[in-house]
Design a protein around this nucleic acid. Sequence first.
DNA 1: CTAGGATCCTGTCAGC
DNA 2: TGCTGACAGGATCCTA
Length: 299
Amino acid sequence: MPELPEVETIRRGLEKYIVKKKIVGVDVYCEKSFCGQVADVVGKNVKEIRRYGKALIIDLSGGISLMIHLRMTGQLIYDGTERYAAGHPSENFVDKLPNKQTRVVIRMSDGVLYFNDQRKFGFVKVMRTAEVEQDKFVKKLAKEPWQMSVEELYAKLQRHPKACIKAVILDQTVICGLGNIYADEALYAAGIHPERRAGSLSKDEVRRLLKEACDVMNRSIESGGSTMATYVRADGSRGDYLEKFAKVFRKEGTECPRCGAKIAKIRVAGRGTHICPKCQNLSVNAEAGAYDSSDKETK
DNA sequence: CTAGGATCCTGTCAGC
DNA sequence: TGCTGACAGGATCCTA
């Protein structure tokens, strides 16, 4: 999906357009994508847009909220006097809307918010504002990297001693916000192989990983997420995180900027995974916590 | 409890 | 051209 930086980008962007606006109608194109009663949101005003991890919460008047999760392929596109689009990257942000992937249409007083989602894993859910924090998904979410201490993350990793570190940091109940792109980028930046067992990381490696997770996502938010996040122009320009900042994600075959080795693509935790085989060493895996001379600190 | 794989769904692309 | 399998920026459910 859209990972934390993309969702935060959407939150900031939408805030400018729909806060204080009224919902005048909702059209559900796909039942699976919309949970709740349309009648509960029509006529309500948008008060605030919040974010819990990768979930977006649109608070409405009358104690009602919309929870929106984009999962793998969700997009939110606001079409008013100008168009703002973010989420799963696609070439058709500038298409005519609704399109084939449009699942829910929220008509506002001066524009239309489209929820598009190719694979239908995402959803728009109507709930009582008071119940948002009790939601199962929200309740289980861990802290975001910026709020988490090295000690806390280290302790959490010890609870998954045998699992691959990449699988563990993708778990939103361990640390929240990372997805497939930023997990690869953070592990690369920290010089840690994604198949290292989580329990084998030293305190210092955990410190590096946490720092790089923050840095990588900060840079992405600053550049508007990795997908288009600015106003849609005729040229269909998009956010430029992948082009500007990604060192390994979808860079297989290119040279590692640090050591020149060829970036490789492997499979870890069922996900495509990108590494520099030289900078990210696996040999320390033999025994959890065991010293290994090949695991030289990068700094 | 953890770890790993299957699963939800649609579309695209490589390889025959 | 048409078919097939693999894969995809996520999270949950099932099994061992």
